[in-house]
Computed example of a mutant assay.
Amino acid sequence: MKTRNISKVEIETLFQDSLLNVRAIEIDNKEAFSFAAPNGKIGGNLFYGDTEKIGVRKQIKLDSTNLNFRSLATPNNKTGFVLSISSPALLYKIDIDSIKLVYQENHPKAFYDSMDFWNNQEGIAIGDPTEDCMSIIITRDGGNTWTKLSCDDLPKAKEGEAAFAASDTNIAIVGDYTWVATGGKASRILFSPDKGNTWEVYKTPIIQGKETTGMYSLDFYDENNGFAIGGDYTKPNDTLNNKIRTNDGGKTWQVVANGKKPGYRSCVQYIPNSNGKELVTVGFKGIDYSNDSGDSWKHLSDESFYTIRFLNDSVAYAAGKGRIGKLTFR
């Protein structure tokens, strides 16, 4: 397979709202795009005959409180799930004509960061510890009920270990395999080979030790090859130990492009059909591209986005402060 060398990105703004900071987006198929945001707003494609626009579809409020959604999952074209940060943590199942609260957690430390599904029936969400382990909730019935795993069945969290609700990419799934990225004073990988039934934990060499350090985003191309990025968002230009790669399914990780840009980024994604060679990362300091599995990077744009998802090997949707854009890589 010939290695591509993308040299630029074209950005088309699809939706603007100065009050929205969007950190959760999903692409269901070629026609279905969804996003979740603060103020309880959920949106996506809106079709007017042959005209397509991006806009807000629904808004969910708890009494007079606006909910902050940073986790979104769309396991099929008809059903979506949104999960709010902070307490009470509220998880809603959204069908075409209904919105149903399917999980609520009132613990004062409740704070959920990311959500994903293995298939139409089984899904997972992860959050900061409320006891002495990461919070993990799982559904096995299409999202109608969710159960929180006991700390007896999970690796113990280290002091100050949590996760970041920066881009809804703390979880990576390939088949039955699941990887969860933690961050903060400790930044490790929780791994399950069997859709969340059993778990083990792996160390990483990414920068850690402060509440603002660690992995902010994780992606796996296949069962062996994965990449994580982060750093310290309070020092976004620092480039030491903020990019790591694995080729053995997350058991061991190596720092790559150490001391070289990019610095802090909030989301990384493999480009589809790139044999695990091509990566794009975004953050409030811009967009960067690698075609050698992360060994070297090219800065494509200073445009700010928090999260990105690929439609194909050239087109992606990205979201950030006040806007959602369509990105075309050439």
Rank of each mutant, 00 (worst) to 15 (best):
R188G: 00
D116Q: 14
I244L: 10
D176T: 13
N197G: 05
K58F: 06
V9Q: 02
K285Y: 08
E303V: 12
A163S: 15
S7Q: 15
T246Q: 07
K298D: 05
E211Q: 13
F329I: 02
A172N: 02
T307G: 02
L190M: 04
V82E: 02
V9I: 14
K321C: 04
D176N: 15
G142V: 08
F191A: 12
A110F: 09
S192Y: 08
I136P: 00
D113G: 06
G294T: 02
F81P: 01
K277I: 02
I308L: 15
T65C: 08
G250I: 05
G276N: 03
G142I: 10
P88K: 07
N225I: 13
G325I: 10
W199M: 08
K326R: 15
N106H: 09
T79M: 08
S64R: 13
K100S: 12
K195M: 15
A186Q: 12
T65M: 12
I308C: 03
I96T: 09
K53F: 12
S64I: 11
A186S: 14
K8S: 15
D302S: 14
A172G: 09
G226H: 08
P38R: 07
E131K: 14
T246I: 08
V174D: 12
S135H: 07
T139Y: 03
Y270A: 00
D168W: 01
K185L: 07
W179K: 07
E131Y: 10
S18Y: 11
P262Q: 06
D219L: 13
L311D: 00
M1Y: 10
W253R: 05
M134S: 03
Y103N: 06
P262V: 05
E303M: 09
Y317K: 05
Y317E: 03
E12G: 02
S314D: 13
D248G: 05
F69C: 01
K260P: 00
S301V: 13
Q16T: 14
T130I: 15
N45E: 10
K156P: 03
I189S: 01
